[in-house]
Amino acid sequence: MTIGSTISREPVGRLLGYLGLRRPRSDAPASSDAPDPGGVRQARRNLIAAIGGFLIENDLEVSPANLLVAHSAFSGRNPQLARQIARRSRSREGVSQQWINEVTSEETQHETRADLDRLMARLETNLDAFQTRSRAAHQMTRDYGSELEEHLTDLERLQKTGQIVSSLADLAKAMLERTRKAEDEMRRSEEEAKSLRRSLARAQRDAEVDYLTGLPNRRAFEALLERHYREARETPVALSVAFCDIDNFKAINDAHGHEAGDRVLKVIADTLAQISDDNCHVARHGGEEFVMLFRGLTPTEAAARLDGARARLADRRLVNRKTDTPFGVVTFSGGVADVFGYPGPRAALKAADDALYRAKEAGRNRVEIA
């Protein structure tokens, strides 16, 4: 199914009813006769038709969660989700409720990470402000204590000054003691702030690593891509992106189990990591998908490097060491695109994604250039 496709009037009516909307009465003027500046109403009808068609054609429940998924995909809010749905629709597995639940879980985790990133950034900003103010207060307290100590020494040197000076000396001693305590507390606060910053840095690193493969995750890759895109645009240099997807991965999981499937994912990750360097970065994008960034390489050069890794993997004969059962030939397909051949990095990623699925349709175990 394609975005914007139409469905019969009866399913649309049921969907409108579910949404708490009503279809116009049969005696009401035709909606096409009413003014529709900018085609807003027609766009809404197309969106409702696309959502309804998606749910009905895939036999999905008309639930709030499924409606949110469909709306995110077909409204343009989440182009990546739309591509995932389109790919899944073209595959033999098709779109199922179980797959929708898995996708929803992944998206929720991604949104949670984004929220965590914002919170950590705010915490880091607050830590900066605290440390700056704490250092200033610490220095002021230290200077005050030093000056007070000098006055106290002068007072104690005076001879026969009487009770007033003696009282002043006692008061100055008490003030100096409290000042030193305050200075110690500020020093401890600074050490705690430094420790918290180190923990924050570790948490940020952990949040950018895929726990299974040890590669950077999707969030880390997106930040890396944006940075390299800005830098490469300022100093003209080639920039290519690639999507890779393990061929027939579901069959591996079905035949050998998910634990064995995880080990295959690690093998693919290691294979791609072997061609990585300072200008070639690989990350796990999610599921059985990997994404790569090639700086200084044209799409043809990047495709050649990726194809070399594909060929080396295809020559291997992997065995499930726990059962001594051969996995058979494990391969992946890839798609490569020129980042500067499209309006922006996201558009280039979509082009690489489309090239990947041309490789799939052409027989798998190959790399295509967008």
Rank of each mutant, 00 (worst) to 15 (best):
K266I: 11
V241F: 03
R227C: 05
A255L: 02
Q274S: 05
C244H: 00
A304S: 05
D277G: 04
D270R: 12
F249E: 08
R218A: 12
L297P: 10
R218W: 09
F294Y: 06
A260V: 02
F243G: 11
C280E: 00
V264T: 01
D277Y: 00
H281D: 04
M292D: 10
D307V: 14
E222S: 12
D278I: 04
D254W: 04
D245E: 10
R218K: 14
V282Y: 09
E234K: 01
T300V: 14
A303I: 05
D270N: 11
F249H: 10
M292L: 15
A220N: 12
A269P: 00
G287Q: 13
S240T: 14
F243Y: 15
E259N: 08
R310H: 13
V237Q: 14
S276F: 03
A242I: 15
T300I: 13
A220Q: 13
L318N: 06
R227E: 03
E222L: 11
R263K: 11
N248I: 01
R227Y: 05
F221W: 12
A302N: 03
V267Q: 02
T300Y: 11
R230N: 01
T300N: 08
I275R: 04
H258C: 03
S276V: 01
A251S: 10
P236Y: 06
H258R: 04
A269E: 06
A311L: 14
A260N: 03
T300E: 15
R316H: 14
P299T: 10
A238K: 06
L313I: 12
G287N: 11
E288D: 06
A304V: 07
M292V: 13
R284H: 11
L313T: 13
R263N: 02
L224N: 09
A273Q: 12
P236T: 04
G261C: 05
F243Q: 14
G296M: 05
V237F: 09
T300G: 13
D247I: 07
E301I: 01
G296Y: 00
G308Q: 11
R316I: 14
A269N: 08
A273V: 01
V282C: 12
N253M: 06
F221P: 03
R305T: 07
